[in-house]
């Protein structure tokens, strides 16, 4: 048992720069991916993750020792880190990859995060400096895979709480109570730290970064690393053969009143149960 008095939280928040959620995406003519020359922003679930870290600090004050944001991506991804810093992160890590390189697969991301955590935790002078909570979005809205958090928890052998809609940290007890969104309702679980949490939409409403905070964020430290610094290989395990447009659906036009609507339903063979 760790002495509970000196328990301090060090939170790691991985964020992803992705195509903005409101953009209508287009598949490129080569069918290798989508046209990425569009507006990008922080993955919405990751904003919720950063916000949750900031909320934990408001609640627990100095017990939250550090909040560190991390991203893997091209040089432009630094903007995403600055946003996280303006929202409340203290420092950031940028694992830089060339613009032309596709974003790494979730397992490679999880291995990168594990490497960062192990690097910090083995260098830590005491438990008070160890990363013991990772908060991630439940999925990235580009690849829609939703697996990175679980993979990281698996690699580290830590507890995991996916699709969190409520997080209650009891620092003295070394425990976190999490309400999760599951099929058909909700589930409450109690996890021991260290642990991995993935955020659902209902967890919180992310704050807007204010101008003074955006200015301050420019002075916060961003450490640059390369995948090789961390000994992680980004060669994909899966081969993307092609990316195509989904079959398009053409609207069938409008009707002018309820009777016409009912006639259309009848035509389709739909009647009252």
């Amino acid at each position: 048992m760790r002495p509970s008095a000196i328990r301090l939280l060090n939170i790691l928040v991985p964020v992803k720069r992705s195509v903005d959620y409101a953009v209508k995406i287009r598949v490129n003519p080569q069918q290798t991916g989508i046209d990425t020359n569009v507006k990008h922003s922080m993955n919405p679930f990751d904003e919720i993750a950063v916000e949750e870290a900031a909320i934990l600090r408001q609640k627990h004050k100095d017990a939250v020792k550090t909040i560190k944001a991390i991203t893997i991506g091209p040089s432009k991804s630094v903007d995403t880190l600055r946003t996280a810093l303006a929202m409340g992160a203290d420092s950031a890590i940028h694992v830089e990859i060339p613009e032309s390189q596709p974003s790494p697969e979730p397992l490679a991301v999880a291995k990168t995060l594990r490497a960062v955590i192990e690097r910090q935790n083995s260098a830590a002078a005491s438990d008070a400096d160890k990363i013991d909570l990772v908060i991630l979005g439940k999925q990235a809205i580009d690849d829609d895979l939703g697996v990175t958090g679980q993979m990281l928890a698996g690699l580290l052998g830590w507890s995991q709480a996916t699709f969190a809609s409520k997080v209650d940290v009891d620092i003295a007890k070394n425990e976190v109570l999490v309400v999760r969104e599951i099929d058909g309702g909700g589930e409450e679980i109690r996890c021991k730290l260290p642990m991995v949490i993935t955020t659902d939409l209902r967890l919180n409403v992310p704050r807007y970064a204010t101008l003074p905070n955006i200015m301050k964020a420019k002075k916060k430290p961003v450490e640059k690393l390369s995948p090789s610094d961390l000994g992680v290989d980004y060669t994909p395990q899966l081969e993307t053969l092609k990316v195509t447009e989904p079959p398009t659906r053409v609207g069938g036009g409008k009707v002018s009143n309820v009777d016409e609507l009912l006639a259309k339903l009848k035509e389709a063979g739909i009647q009252a149960a």
Binding site: P106, D144, G146, V147, Q150, M151, L155, I182, D183, Q237
Partner: peptide, 23 residues
């Protein structure tokens, strides 16, 4: 693609150094 399989499969796959293809 349910909340419990989505939570479990990636955790196991990572331990076997394999990806999980979702949905």
């Amino acid at each position: 693609t349910s909340s419990s399989a989505k939570s479990l499969l990636p955790r196991v796959s990572a331990r076997l150094d394999a990806p999980t293809v979702s949905d």
